[in-house]
Amino acid sequence: MASLKEVKTRINSVQSTRKITSAMKMVASAKLHKAQGAIENMLPYQRKLNKILTNFLSADLPVESPYVVERPVKRVAIVAFSSNGSLCGAFNANVLKLFLQTVGEYRELGQDNILIYPVGRKIEETIKKLGFFPQGSYQQFADKPNYSEAAALAHTLMDLFVNKEVDRVELIYHHFKSIGIQELLRERYLPIDLSDMGNQDAESGVVNDYIVEPSAEQLIADLIPQVLSQKIFTAALDSNASEHAARVLAMQVATDNANELIQELTKQYNKTRQQAITNELLDIVGGSMA
C-alpha cells in the first residue's frame, strides 16, 4: 500500500491538473460563445444564398455555368478542416479518419493527382507524415476565419476547376449543431450539385421562372464566386465552433474524472492514515502490557 506522503502527492498533482482543465474549459466556453454566435448568424444567410444560386442554375435559362459541368474524375482537390491545437477529444482524429477514407477512394488516381488543402495545423502535419505535399498553409485561417482568406482559397479552387486542372473538389469539416453534437461532413464543393435542390423544388411546387436583369450571364458571373467563397467561410466558422465545443466537452470530462480521482485518493489517504494511527495505538498498548 502507498505511503501517506505518496497519496498526498498524487492528490496535490490531480488537484493541479483539475485547475488546468477547469481553466481551459472556461476559456473554451468563452471562445465557443463568440464562435457559436458567428456561425448561427452566418448559416441562414449562406443557405439562402446557396438556394438562390441552385434554383437559378436549375431554371430553364439559356445560360450554362462551367461550375456545374460533370467530368470524369482524373484529378481531385480535398479541403480538410482541423484545429491548430489539441485537447479537443476525438475532433481531429475523426477528421483524419474521414480524410484517409476519402483519399483511399481516390488512391487509383495516384498521389500526384490528389491535391490537399489543409486548414489547421493538425491535418497539415498529418498529411506531411503521409508523404503528401500540402497546397499551402492555412493555420491562421483555422484559428481566426475571415472572409478574405476564404475568398482567396475559393477563387484558387474555382480557377483549378474551370481550367480543368481538377475535376472535383471536396470539403471535409465539422458542422456545429450544438455543444454536444458536432457532425462530421464530407461535401462536394465543385461541380455544384443541383440534384438535391431540384428534388426540393419538385416537392414544394416551386417553379423556377426568373426575369433576370441586366443579364443571366452577369448574374452568374457575380453570384457564383460569392456563394462559393461564402461556403468556404461558413465551413471554417462551422469547424471553429465545433472545435471549441469539442474542447469544452473534453475539458469537462477531464475535470469530472479529476474530481472522481481526488475523491478516491482522499478515501485511500484517510484509510491509510487511520490504519497507521491504529497500528501506533496497538504498539503503545502492547508496550504498556509488556
Results as ranks from 00 to 15, higher is better:
V207A: 06
A30K: 09
R71Y: 11
L160K: 05
I114T: 05
D209F: 01
V95I: 14
Y210R: 02
E6R: 00
A80T: 08
T278S: 13
I192M: 10
L265G: 14
E64D: 11
V79A: 12
R75Q: 11
A276P: 01
M251Q: 15
T126N: 02
K122W: 00
N146I: 05
D167L: 04
S242W: 00
G85C: 02
E70H: 09
S215P: 04
S242F: 01
V169P: 13
L96T: 12
A254N: 13
I11C: 07
L157R: 02
Q111D: 03
V166G: 12
P191H: 08
L223Y: 12
S195I: 06
I192V: 15
L228P: 06
P191G: 12
A235S: 15
K5F: 06
V27Q: 11
V206P: 00
N208E: 07
I211D: 14
E187A: 13
D238Y: 05
T156N: 12
Y173N: 15
R71T: 10
N113K: 07
Q200V: 07
V169T: 09
N92A: 07
R47V: 10
E260D: 15
K177I: 09
Y147A: 14
S288I: 07
G37E: 12
A235T: 09
S242E: 06
E6H: 00
L53S: 11
L61M: 08
S3P: 01
D112Q: 09
E165T: 11
S16D: 10
Q252N: 14
E170P: 01
F161C: 10
S148N: 08
S137Q: 09
M26A: 15
P214F: 08
S3Y: 00
E213M: 08
K271H: 09
P118A: 05
M197E: 13
V63D: 08
F56T: 10
R168V: 09
A202K: 11
F99R: 01
G110H: 07
V7N: 05
A241I: 04
Q252M: 08
K122D: 05
S86I: 02
A59Q: 01
Y173A: 15
L265T: 13
L57R: 03
A59Y: 03
N257S: 13
Y45S: 10
I127D: 06
I262S: 10
P134Q: 08
Q36P: 02
N163E: 15
E6T: 04
E64N: 12
R188G: 13
Q101M: 01
